[in-house]
């Protein structure tokens, strides 16, 4: 190994370690007793390991319910995005209709709108619809989006014409071709969109914060924020970190499993510019 490679690996290892420290510290704190947490100098390793913060956190707040809310919202949003984006993406890529390019550009233009600009009118709309503090408010506005349409359109542009023509000769209508012939080939693009949507919905904070009132409707990030806000003088860091570990694991799991597709999605976003 050359000198520059040794240097590169040293720098990378130090950097990687500092990336991991907050995660490890969250995990370590969640496994410590209160006495260990407030010890000085700080104990770096929990000794003895103790799990008590996890049941204690679940007693303090309905963590299971938060988890279920987050999961339900993320799964349904992801499924919905895959359906709406692939339908529109297919139409934009393979069907001919008036104003096709103009309409597509309009969709792309909506990607430039920062979501924060819309939250006030969207909140008003939710309250008119009577959706505040319901799953509908947490899910329905997230079912659509231009990013997914763009991603799926790119994929369907490369879909072989021969397959389409064969299906037409067999008497398939455009919807049947989309559903039975084109969609099954689009699994990689759908995986990319799905992983992206799942992780961003799972981590989303501002929107669920605004549209939920009752404790039972909170998603994990909102529940965690309220849990922290409930402490004033002394914060139960052990319980808070235990809740943090539970909230972080699913998104990390999905990322580790689908890393390849996630990075590809990032690239297509950067190519689009």
């Amino acid at each position: 190994m050359g000198r520059s490679r040794v240097l590169a690996y040293t720098v990378l290892s130090l950097g990687a370690f500092s990336m991991l420290v907050p995660f490890l510290w969250m995990l370590a704190t969640s496994l410590m007793s209160t006495a260990q947490i407030y010890a000085f100098p700080p104990k770096l390793m929990p000794d003895p390991l103790q799990w008590q913060n996890y049941p204690a956190a679940m007693d303090a707040v309905p963590l299971g319910r938060f988890f279920w809310n987050s999961l339900l919202v993320a799964v349904l949003t992801t499924a919905g995005q895959m359906v709406t984006a692939s339908m529109a993406g297919y139409a934009f890529a393979r069907l001919h209709f008036p104003f096709r390019n103009g309409l597509f550009l309009l969709f792309l233009a909506t990607m430039m709108i920062p979501p924060q600009v819309n939250i006030v009118p969207l909140f008003m709309l939710m309250s008119r619809l009577g959706w505040i503090d319901t799953y509908a408010a947490l899910i329905v506005p997230g079912l659509f989006g231009a990013f997914g349409i763009f991603l799926l359109r790119q994929w369907f542009l490369g879909f072989p014409v021969e397959l389409e023509q064969a299906a037409r000769l067999d008497g398939c209508n455009p919807f049947q071709i989309y559903w039975h012939v084109a969609l099954p080939t689009a699994l990689p693009a759908l995986a990319t969109l799905g992983i992206f949507t799942f992780i961003s919905t799972w981590n989303s904070f501002l929107w669920p914060l605004i549209v939920t009132n009752s404790e039972m409707m909170r998603t994990l990030p909102v529940g965690l924020a309220a849990f922290k806000g409930a402490f004033r003088e002394t914060t139960e860091w052990g319980q808070l970190m235990a809740a943090g570990v539970i909230s972080v694991l699913p998104a990390l799991g999905v990322f580790l499993i689908g890393q390849k597709y996630f990075i590809q999605g990032l690239m297509s976003g950067s190519l689009k510019g």
Partner: peptide
């Protein structure tokens, strides 16, 4: 993968640890 972990982690959870 390690450098990418914070990107896919909930900002709320991260803010809690850093707060600590």
């Amino acid at each position: 993968t390690i450098y990418f972990l914070p990107v896919v982690t909930s900002m709320v959870a991260i803010a809690l640890v850093w707060n600590w």
